[in-house]
């Protein structure tokens, strides 16, 4: 066991300070009485109250939750299959293109993905709305699920599946009864990842949404462009809190599964 040097300690403290101070400031100023974001005017929760009476934000939050829930569920289904194919199906015709289509969306600039989807929807004269945003979110989220599942599957012991198949179990039943329960933590974290990705997305949603399907990030973005207000801090704090809860819950599920 090596000991932490002064350099290690300093870089950890400074590094985490850099990562967290902006978020902490954001949260603190959401409880500020004053309308000025930089002047402390006393503790107050009035901005949360104001948030509750803002119909635009509530509508946008509802659209976002609907999109996030649907897209992450379908993306988990498609992504799990894709991860399985990547990890266990060996070579097949078109594999290079397949893995390219899995890895590229994760790094490709969002403006390109958003523009290309939008142009396709227009070319096929599909009306833009909640449906098109959901389709777009499924497409990039499933790639993240695929990679999470793939890395779990690559350390998966095939002999359990072979045992089930030898005993007369069908491949589909083997997958449902044997494989799926074992890789469940990866599938769940894939779902959580998809959910937060969908919750966070601004650029792709801006391209693919239509009238009546303004998502929460789009609403926040239009508010930010008008200026910094404690109300944005309040809605951000709620989102940060939800994500933190999700991450902690997710890692808890993972730990419990490991112990079992």
């Amino acid at each position: 066991m090596t000991r932490l040097t002064l350099f290690n300690k300093t870089s950890l403290i400074l590094g985490f300070a850099f990562l967290y101070i902006p978020i902490i400031i954001l949260i603190v100023f959401s409880f500020n009485e004053s309308k000025l974001v930089t002047v402390w005017g006393g503790f107050s929760t009035k901005w949360y109250g104001e948030l509750m009476s803002n119909q635009g934000i509530k509508d946008a939050a509802w659209v976002t939750l609907k999109v996030a829930f649907t897209s992450s569920t379908i993306a988990t289904f498609l992504g799990t299959i894709a991860g399985l194919v990547m990890a266990k199906f060996g070579r097949f015709r078109g594999r290079t293109l397949f893995s390219g289509m899995i890895y590229a969306p994760m790094v490709m600039p969002e403006v390109i993905i958003g523009l290309s989807l939008l142009l396709m929807f227009v070319a096929l004269s599909i009306d833009r709305g909640v449906m098109t945003v959901t389709l777009a979110h499924i497409t990039f989220s499933m790639c993240y699920v695929a990679v999470v599942v793939q890395s779990r599957m690559s350390s998966y012991d095939d002999s359990i599946n072979e045992a089930a198949l030898d005993l007369g179990c069908t491949p589909f039943k083997t997958f449902i009864l044997i494989t799926l329960p074992i890789i469940m933590p990866a599938v769940i974290s894939g779902w959580l990842l998809s959910f937060t990705l969908s919750l966070d997305d601004l650029v792709i949603a801006s391209f693919t949404s239509g009238p009546g399907s303004t998502t929460l990030p789009m609403k926040i973005y239009s508010m930010v462009r008008l200026g910094v207000t404690p109300e944005i801090n309040a809605v951000s704090t709620i989102l940060v809190g939800l994500v933190a809860l999700g991450v902690v819950a997710g890692s808890f599920i993972g730990k419990k599964q490991k112990i079992n």
Binding site: L19, L26, V37, L193, I220, V224, V240, V243, V247
Partner: peptide, 22 residues
């Protein structure tokens, strides 16, 4: 590691917005 992952999962837009006030 979880402390690194937490901001990674937090909204991009919110993290950029946080810097405006600073």
């Amino acid at each position: 590691l979880m402390l690194v992952i937490l901001p990674f999962w937090t909204s991009f837009l919110i993290r950029v917005y946080a810097w405006i006030g600073i």
